[in-house]
Amino acid sequence: MPPQQAVAALPARASSNLRLGLLVPAVAAVVALALLPVFTSGYVVYVANVLLVYVVLSLGLNLVIGEAGQFSLSHAAFYGIGIYAAALGNKLLGLPLVGCLLLAGVVAALLGGVIGTIALRMRDIYLALTTFAFGEAMQWLFLNWEPVTGGPNGLRIPPSSLFGVEILNDKQAYPVVLGVALLMLGATVVISRSRLGRAFRAVRESDVAAMAMGIPVRRVKIMAFLLSAFYAGVAGGLFATFSTYIHPESLGFQTTMTVLTMVVVGGLGSTGGALLGAVVFGLISELLRQAPAVQEMTYGLILILFMMFVPRGLAPAVSRWVRGRGHV
């Protein structure tokens, strides 16, 4: 076989092995995750909750940047909108947990759709700057719209309730957070493989060609922003289920950069990468929380090192490794 053909044939053979090889560990991982609160302390469960929120955030950011190739730097704003929407839905409307999560997702998605529509006029650095400015403006709003957000005093989030039971601690919230995160992960896999997912990638690779294939490029771009914001909103809703307090300080560009770093570390454009990046990088940042001075520098360093040496992220390397083992 000429070398080029060998290269072409390789992934085809490996993919079925890969699927089987991944199914068993995946099921085992889900079972282990479900049993986590039985074996571990409240702190570990808290960290798990935080990581799962990061997973949902990363999945959403990867949809718009990784899959659709549209630079969006307002993820933290949509996340914040989700937190406030869920908290206020609970506090003012007395919505149950599922209602709060949906409200969080839908409000964020609507705003995402608006931003997406505005973003149609821009690309690249202009788009990045505009979405950045929107994120800053939203943070300003969170800080100054005191009657609604509590402004600089922050907002106390009352315990949410699921089927009449109040969720008072991390362990009680965990099954909900895990369940929703897995649901979002499943949805991401389905979307990525679907006609819409292909349209996202087509727009990313060449919007002129995408148009020639009959893809409504504008609608697809808006959809990417909208979906991505929905994920961020739901992530915010999840955060609200296990948190008692939210302050706008944590809803700025720093948080967007953290999620962006997760997606880049994992591998832009790969669902598995977003998952992996959120977990690995989320753990690192939790470890570094004790030393906040080092934290930001370390983030920057990790991002630079990955851009230089692993520009495609962890995902391709890991899947090569898994594939390699499948052959032995």
Binding site: R201, A202, R204, E205, S206, V208, A209, A212, G269
Partner: peptide, 12 residues
């Protein structure tokens, strides 16, 4: 249509 200067979805 096709394009004179190739407009493939190169990364796919």
């Amino acid at each position: 249509r096709t394009f004179q200067n190739l407009e493939l979805f190169g990364g796919l």
